[in-house]
């Protein structure tokens, strides 16, 4: 490629990025309005909804004294665990069958299925993250929870969970447009994955064979990293960073391939 061509393709790339940024923003604003409307607290539901869920689980686990087998206070355990589940598990639920209701927007050449996915994923991540932060601050303020020991570590774990959730969501969102089975089967799977998500237990408690099995699940690794960041030396975490990143990378590539295949078939109404 000559210098001239490189400069040219740079300009194309930059203008493409600008177009995509505008389209995703437009879809995002539109999604906030269609989902939450303009009335009462509006878009605040974005993070109040996951907050209510997490508070409910925290109360439930505290009352029933669910054994999680570590010295970590139950509030902190529930907040880190359940927030993590909400982050990755709600993402596929938001992208599955999200193209059909948006078909009329595909009349605009630059509005593509991946933009619908991205806008919904950004919203979902923003909601779950805000809920996690607000709850941590709140419980910290009333003295039920200590601040995290290593914020960067928490961010790393949280980022991996968001990456995993997004990749899974793009895969399932694309496949759901090709086959109805995806939507039908996701709900039971999402439910059944909860016990395997690492939210309600500590990997350290399990026998080595069980640990090894569970660490095949990327979300278990993610939660463990979040907890290591949060509790530091008070918590013995087990995870494989390289494996988790590789898993997410492969899943992302699959998702983009499925999306490409599906979007070629999209027919605006």
């Amino acid at each position: 490629m000559s210098i001239n061509e490189t400069a040219h393709s740079n300009i194309y790339l930059r203008s493409s990025i600008n177009v995509q940024r505008r389209v995703v923003f437009a879809l995002l604003m539109r999604e906030i309005l269609t989902r939450y409307g303009r009335h009462n607290i509006g878009f605040l539901w974005l993070f109040i909804e996951p907050m209510v869920f997490t508070i409910g689980i925290t109360v439930l686990w505290t009352v029933t004294r669910t054994v999680h087998g570590s010295s970590i206070p139950i509030t902190a355990f529930a907040v880190t665990g359940y927030s993590s589940v909400l982050l990755w598990r709600n993402m596929p639920s938001r992208t599955i069958l999200s193209i059909i209701p948006n078909l009329s927007l595909m009349y605009h050449r630059n509005v593509r299925p991946i933009d619908v996915f991205l806008s919904r994923l950004i919203l979902e991540a923003a909601g779950a993250t805000t809920s996690f932060i607000v709850l941590s601050l709140l419980f910290n303020f009333v003295g039920w929870m200590d601040p995290p020991q290593d914020i960067l570590m928490v961010l790393l774990g949280w980022g991996l969970l968001a990456w995993f959730g997004s990749a899974l969501a793009i895969c399932l969102g694309a496949l759901s447009e090709l086959s109805e089975i995806v939507d039908k089967i996701w709900h039971p799977i999402a439910y059944l994955l909860f016990p395997l998500s690492g939210a309600a237990f500590s990997v350290d408690l399990l026998p080595p064979a069980g640990r090894e099995f569970l660490l095949y699940f990327p979300m278990v690794n993610g939660v463990e990293i979040v907890r290591e960041g949060y509790f530091g030396s008070n918590y013995t975490a087990h995870y494989d960073l390289g494996y988790t990143a590789a898993f997410c990378l492969v899943l992302s590539l699959c998702g983009l391939a499925f999306e490409r295949h599906m979007s070629a078939k999209v027919t605006p109404e």
Partner: peptide, 27 residues
């Protein structure tokens, strides 16, 4: 885009919301 006088709206949104959407997408 194909100018047909029916579709391409989000009907639960207001006319102005649809105007804003077009403005955002087309800068």
């Amino acid at each position: 885009w194909p100018i047909a006088f029916g579709g391409a709206f989000q009907t639960t949104l207001t006319g102005m919301d649809n105007v804003r959407f077009i403005c955002r997408v087309y800068n």
